[in-house]
Amino acid sequence: MTPALVELENVSKIYRLGEVDVPALQGVDLSVQAGDFLALMGPSGSGKSTLLHILGLLDRPTAGRVLWEGEDVTRLNGAKLAELRGRRIGFVFQMFNLVHNLTALENVELPLIFLGVPARERRKRAEEMLVRLGLGDRLRHRPSQLSGGQQQRVALARALVTDPALLIADEPTGNLDTATGREILNLFRELNAQGRTVVLATHDPEAAGVAKIRLRLRDGQIVEVEK
């Protein structure tokens, strides 16, 4: 049996706010298989984002283990984690998180720079990705010159340009109107249909409806799994 893409074993995360320990995750077990489309649901503060960050190797658990394709990455050093993030994971955020003084094209090139991809190839791949997402005429625009939907598609292009194994999206439709949000969700569905593994966090039931598996979180624990 091939190992899961990402597997969390009894993962806990505790934030220290001054004198008080705030548990964000408590003993979570989760396994994401290649080709899955997961939606994490739950109210604010239920631990969705923390879980996403740990899945995306942006954060380390306080306790428990994280396995990436069967290998324990919990104690991996920062540089190795960064490389794994850059090569295998793409992120999309609620606030788009584009770099403001770079053009759409340069934003999409960014992950490839850190992977050491030569300039010419980098440009070509970034351009192709933006064209595929319908932004062929917006290459030289800066984020401030783009609509919210366009910005989120640039962010998606940036997440996909490295051809990652896992796409992680934190409230990707949270800052978009309904119609634009639907467009983006359709893109996610298409991507998953093409075999891409997607994990998204949302409290929009419509967004969650697109996913194959819905996990409900409360107080840092997975309380319900719906397939």
């Binding site: 995306g56 942006l58 920062g78 540089a79 960064a82 490389e83 993030r85 850059g86 090569r87 992120f91 998180n97 584009l98 770099v99 403001h100 960014l110 992950p111 850190f114 992977l115 940036r158 490295t162």
Partner: peptide, 16 residues
């Protein structure tokens, strides 16, 4: 600060 976070999310190492 936020931009630094973005760079790290897309694969920038501390050294970069």
């Amino acid at each position: 600060t936020r931009e630094i976070g973005i760079l790290k999310a897309v694969g920038a190492k501390d050294s970069h």
